[in-house]
Design a protein around this nucleic acid. Structure first.
Lengths: 154, 154
DNA sequence: GCAAATTGGTTTCAGATGAAACCAATGTCA
DNA sequence: TGACATTGGTTTCATCTGAAACCAATTTGC
């Protein structure tokens, strides 16, 4: 009867917490802005970088090709994002926020930050940063141990 | 151009890390034991508690009804788990590990622990515990803020 | 005692997902 | 230059997922 406490098992805790948080944000994004998480992530990268191709989005978010492609399609359809030509290489189709997209982005950012703050409210001071550092560490470690990001090597 | 650093955004970090880790473990469980994560979780609860109904599994893991049901079906088919009668209430069908199931469970536990240790290796001493505490805290907070667990209220 | 509500669990159905196939534009290197 | 490999991106297909419908056994309220 080798006992085992699932509750204290890191992968499990991670997954439960992540799912709960994802759900929470997914609902907010959907209700307030009509965006899926994937769409919001694309906007976040494009918004932050000013312009970004699907490859860039993929690199930064770890989302797989198909997912990015579908999210972009959704954003294009709602004109939150537009394609800009890439002189020189006609394969890449960089994206940029449209004015509407920029406005939406500017509206989301503070809401997202506020919800994040609510989540972390009550965490002892240094803990928030420590948590992020630990997560980053674990992620690096997991990648090193062979977990390929979504979509894999390609 | 309200800048926004997705990389330092908690929900995002959480999701990326969790996905990476899940993938890593999913592959291990699949390769070494032919189990999905959902199946392993059911076994973990049943193995830990000795006997557990689907409701118990659901309560402990946050998995939704359908997912539990499907995982259980898989385990039953491979005879890693069996149903035991619940005298008194014929709706509930508690589960228990079969001898094979127990053997498998006993084989997985140390492997899972070892992989977890590898993941956390290098984290400054107190950090592992701190990470789990922080995750637990955030999860509680997210639930309070309205994220229903998978499957929702029912 | 019995209709209505609840609970444990399975199944159905529509939508999401990832792997792999695919297409077009570039690079490579002989 | 011209095969061949690579790269950016979309689409297809089989699978997975969750919400809701469903079924059976219980419990509740009257």
């Amino acid at each position: 009867m080798s006992s085992f406490d699932l509750d204290a098992f890191l992968p499990y805790r991670l997954s439960v917490t992540s799912n709960l948080v994802s759900r929470l944000f997914a609902r907010r994004y959907a209700e307030e802005f009509g965006l899926t998480i994937a769409e919001w992530r694309v906007m976040a990268v494009v918004g932050a970088d000013g312009t970004a191709s699907a490859v860039a989005v993929r690199a930064r978010t770890g989302m797989d090709k198909a997912k990015v492609s579908r999210a972009v399609a959704g954003l294009l359809a709602r004109r939150l994002v537009k394609r800009v030509a890439h002189r020189g290489d006609r394969r890449v189709e960089p994206l940029a926020l449209t004015p509407t997209g920029r406005a939406t982005f500017d509206a989301i950012v503070p809401r997202a930050r506020a919800l994040e703050a609510e989540l972390a409210a009550g965490l002892p001071p240094g803990q928030h940063a420590a948590l992020e550092a630990a997560l980053r560490f674990i992620a690096t470690r997991a990648a090193a141990l062979g977990a390929e990001p979504e979509g894999g090597p390609d």
